[in-house]
Design a protein around this nucleic acid. Structure first.
Lengths: 114, 114
DNA sequence: TCTACAGCTGCAAATACTTGCAATTGAGCA
DNA sequence: TGCTCAATTGCAAGTATTTGCAGCTGTAGA
C-alpha cells in the first residue's frame, strides 16, 4: 500500500481519537502539566467512568501517559506540542461561526493560550 | 455554555469531518489547486458516488468550495492553509509506527510537501 | 430532441462510537 | 484483615458513520 495512503489512514485514526469535545478539553487541561483523573473529571464536570474511558482511548493511542502516585492515576500529554497544534487548528473553526458568536473564539483562544 | 466548551465542540466537529482517510487524501490532493470530481476519484481510486459524498460533507462544513465549469464540478480548498496544518499533524503520527514502517512517514511527508 | 457524460441523491446493511450504570480492581490505612 | 477512596472494566441501548448500489439531474453536443 502506498505511503500516502498509509499515513492518511494513521492520521485519520489519530484525528478520530481527538475529534470529541470531551477529549479535546482533556488535552487542553493537560497542556499545562499533569493532573489526576478526579481533578479532570471535576474540571470538565463529567462522570468519572467517562473520563476514564476517554483517557484510556487517548492512552491506547499514546497521546497521553499515566503515572501512579499512591492511589492516584496522574496523566500527562505524551507530546505537549499536540495541544498547541490543536489550538492553532481553531483557526479553521472561525468560518463556522456567525458574527455574534464569533467572539467566543477569540475568547477561547485567549483562555487556551495561557 | 462556556466558550471553551463551545469551541471544543466546534473543533471536534471539524476534526470529525477531516478524520477519514479518503477525506484527508482529498484535502491533500487539493492542496495544489482545484480539481474536478472525476480526477479526484481516479487519483484516489475510489467510486464516484463515494468521492461525491465526501466532498459534499467537506462542502457542508465549508472546508472546500465548488465551482462549475461546463459539466464539470471543480473543487478547491476554502482555506488552503488547512492542508499545511494537516501535514504538520503528521508529526503526531510518528509514535505509532515501529522502526520498520517509520520510513513511510518521511516518505509521505516528502510527497505531501509537494 | 436524443444521447452521453459528469455528478449527485437516497436508501438499506454493516460497522463503529457514545453513554450510563453496575460491578470490579488496587492502593493505602486503621 | 477489612474498609475506603480512586479509577477502571464490562455491557447493553441508543446514535452516528460508512459503504455499495441503483436511480436521478443537469449540461453539452449531434
Amino acid at each position: 500500500m502506498p505511503s500516502r495512503q498509509v499515513v492518511a489512514k494513521e492520521l485519520a485514526d489519530i484525528l478520530k481519537v481527538i475529534a470529541h469535545p470531551d477529549r479535546i478539553r482533556l488535552i487542553e487541561e493537560l497542556r499545562a502539566g499533569e493532573l489526576d483523573v478526579n481533578t479532570l473529571a471535576s474540571r470538565l464536570n463529567l462522570p468519572g467512568p467517562r473520563v476514564s474511558q476517554h483517557l484510556s482511548l487517548l492512552r491506547a493511542h499514546r497521546l497521553v501517559e499515566e503515572r501512579r502516585d499512591g492511589r492516584r492515576h496522574v496523566y500527562h500529554l505524551n507530546q505537549p506540542e499536540l495541544a498547541a497544534w490543536l489550538v492553532s487548528g481553531v483557526d479553521f473553526v472561525e468560518g463556522r461561526f456567525d458574527k455574534s458568536t464569533h467572539s467566543r473564539i477569540t475568547d477561547a483562544r485567549r483562555l487556551w493560550a495561557n
